[in-house]
């Protein structure tokens, strides 16, 4: 079983986001990038499958601040091969990215591709199902659990309210991971350091990206709330008192 996990970096939402002077894009100067959290789950799920049924896990990302660290961390968790797509990917749409990845995957010939279910900054669809279409593979997303079967996998797909659909998906396939069966494991930094000495990141240059398929933006802005919360100021005691008063007023206390 050969499993490929493509990794995306996204703006950290804990930081303040600002819009650049063009008015149609985020200001990248102050942007802190972090791994799309669903990708952490995808890596974990891939490694769980390998531990259960054997095989090979390949983790791949486009060049970004922190991409090497992430790849080495994945290796420390058990990934066998690390690939970095180099080139300028800033502001590249998901259709273009998926096409670039499809070229890579045609060479790697995986049985299973695990992407994150989505990223919070998508505007032109998601890479997982785009990739599946370009590769002629089936796609199932919102997956939280995978069991290997003969020539296929049983994916547990989430529906609202906690309903699960058990779905048989013929391999090769692309699955969009919502959550791994176990929380993503933690690896000690000492172990990552060790891996850095031995693991190798393969670089794969990407020169001419075909940018078709993107969506045009005429304005980007921060939401103006119709009714913003009434803010309670003061120290913890003052705030606590006010909250107790609000709860009493609602008749719950």
């Amino acid at each position: 079983m050969k499993i490929v996990v493509p990794i995306k970096f996204v703006p950290d939402l804990v930081e303040e986001l600002t819009i650049d002077p063009s008015g149609v894009a985020l200001d990248t100067a102050w942007l802190r990038l972090i791994i799309n959290e669903f990708d952490d789950h995808a890596v974990e799920q891939a490694i769980l499958l390998k531990e259960r049924g054997g095989g090979q896990v390949i983790v791949s990302t486009v060049e970004a601040d922190g991409s090497d660290d992430f790849l080495f961390t994945a290796a420390a968790k058990g990934a066998d091969q690390l690939i970095k797509m180099t080139g300028d990917f800033t502001g590249v749409n998901n259709h273009a990215l998926a096409r670039a990845y499809a070229e890579l995957l045609k060479e790697l010939k995986p049985d299973l591709v695990l992407t994150g279910v989505q990223a919070h900054n998508d505007l032109d669809g998601s890479v997982g199902p785009l990739l599946a279409e370009y590769l002629g593979m089936p796609y199932v997303g919102y997956v939280a659990g995978i069991t290997l079967a003969d020539g296929s996998v049983i994916a547990r797909k989430e529906y609202p309210g906690g309903l699960i659909a058990e779905i048989d998906v013929k391999l090769p396939a692309v699955l969009g991971i919502q959550a791994s069966e176990q929380p993503p494991r933690y690896v000690a930094y000492s172990k990552i350091r060790q891996v850095m000495g031995t693991a190798k990141i393969e670089e794969r240059p990407n020169a001419d990206l075909n940018l078709d398929g993107g969506v045009s933006i005429s304005r980007m802005f921060q939401p103006e709330a119709a009714e913003r919360a009434e803010m309670i100021d003061g120290d913890a005691d003052t705030v606590a008192e006010k909250i107790v008063a609000i709860i009493k007023e609602a008749g719950v206390l």
Binding site: P11, L17, L26, N121, L123, S218, M220, F221, Q222, P223
Partner: peptide
């Protein structure tokens, strides 16, 4: 469209 966890809105044709 609403992106970035609700922090950013995007408008277009």
């Amino acid at each position: 469209s609403q992106i970035c966890g609700g922090k950013i809105m995007v408008e277009g044709d």
